[in-house]
Design a protein around this nucleic acid. Structure first.
Length: 351
DNA sequence: AAGGCGGGGAC
DNA sequence: GTCCCAGCCTT
């Protein structure tokens, strides 16, 4: 792209953004803390999904100090249902680091930002440019798609080489004073006009005349991405166990999938009625009614859970050290249970 | 370079 | 069903 085209690109894009920017909760006051929280929530997560979580979080945890001091259970409860829960734990770690190493102030330079847990190449650029006006690129999935089409780049945008090409180009184009607006405009264009899956609305695009992909009539075929691998399937049996009005829950391991979130007792495989009874006996539950709750499927990015459930009404119990016994109300208020178990927790919420 | 890590919306 | 989302971290 020549210098004249870059200049035109800047002007057209920012003109368009000034008229078409969506009104978003984190845009009216782009303070570093608000930008940081919003950018972490927005990682691999749609704007409409993030909105209510962001508002609730800012009200519950308005300062870095409070974030550094928050309990893990309260933090995960605020994150419940949003997914990628390591983001929440990294947020707390980063808050502690900001208090200790940066005197309570979020740093403005890329290197310091990237030193914080959960902040990588994209998020460091986003915070630096939006909150501090630093002329740094912020290359996300939208930008990769938009720029691949603008330059008619047929390379795999997942490859580091192509990413670097696009990052270098955006860095060259990014000469305007409004670096934060420029980055947001590029993402906004990708989210609302230069749509994925072969559906770009080129007729509405402010930089259509500068787009090689459009001029060559291949915009819809770009960007090129490698095919995804198949998901692994796991069978599970879920037990919703009630005893004297309380439900059994337990905390997952603090690493790996859904780490340190809470769940109903469950085991690998699809257990029959008799197998379930034997397993419950191992857990000290000797006398109970067992009722089937039906099947449920939950799809993760890399994994599928195919579940069957049993509702267990316990009459007597030998020892119950294995689980926490909580009321439906306590679960709703205190314990973060991942969406994967929703089909079996609905019954509790209805109580 | 590749895989783990959630959940949901659009088609 | 498939794709992909304001990605990061570990191996």
């Amino acid at each position: 792209m020549d210098l004249g085209s870059m200049k035109q690109f800047n002007i057209k894009l920012l003109e368009w953004y000034d008229c078409n920017a969506r009104i978003l909760p984190w845009r009216d006051d782009p303070s570093p803390y608000r930008v940081w929280i919003s950018e972490i929530m927005l990682q691999q997560t749609r704007v409409d999904t993030v909105k209510p979580y962001f508002k609730r979080f800012m009200k519950a945890v308005p300062t870095i100090q409070e974030l550094a001091d928050i309990s893990e259970d309260r933090l995960l409860k605020l994150w419940e249902g949003l997914g990628y829960y390591s983001r929440a734990r990294n947020l707390k770690k980063a808050a502690a680091a900001i208090m200790q190493e940066f005197e309570g102030q979020i740093p403005s330079d890329i290197q310091s930002l990237k030193s914080l847990p959960g902040i990588g190449p994209y998020t460091s650029g986003a915070i630096a440019s939006i909150a501090f006006g630093v002329k740094a690129p912020a290359i996300d999935g939208n930008v990769l798609r938009v720029m691949a089409r603008i330059t008619a780049n047929k390379g795999d945008i997942a490859s580091p080489r192509i990413k670097k090409e696009i990052e270098d180009l955006v860095s060259q184009i990014l000469t305007v004073e409004r670096a934060g607006d420029f980055n947001q405009a590029l993402m906004e264009l990708g989210a609302t006009v230069c749509l994925p899956n072969g559906s770009p609305k080129c007729a509405e695009c402010p930089v259509q005349a500068l787009c090689k992909g459009h001029l060559q009539d291949i915009a819809a075929e770009l960007p090129v991405k490698a095919k995804k691998k198949d998901r692994r399937i796991e069978q599970k049996t879920i037990f919703v166990i009630e005893y004297k009005g309380n439900i059994a829950i337990r905390q997952r391991a603090n690493e790996g999938l859904l780490s340190s979130l809470w769940e109903f007792p469950n085991v690998e495989g699809h257990l029959s009625y008799e197998e379930s009874k034997a397993r419950l006996k191992e857990w000290g539950i000797t006398s109970c009614e067992i009722m089937p709750m039906g099947t449920s499927k939950h799809i993760f990015t890399h994994l599928e859970w195919h579940m069957i459930g049993y509702f267990i009404l316990v009459q007597s119990i030998q020892e119950y050290n294995n689980f926490i016994w909580a009321t439906g109300e306590e679960i709703k208020k205190q314990y973060s249970i991942p969406t994967a178990f929703k089909a079996y927790s609905r019954l509790i919420n209805d109580k």
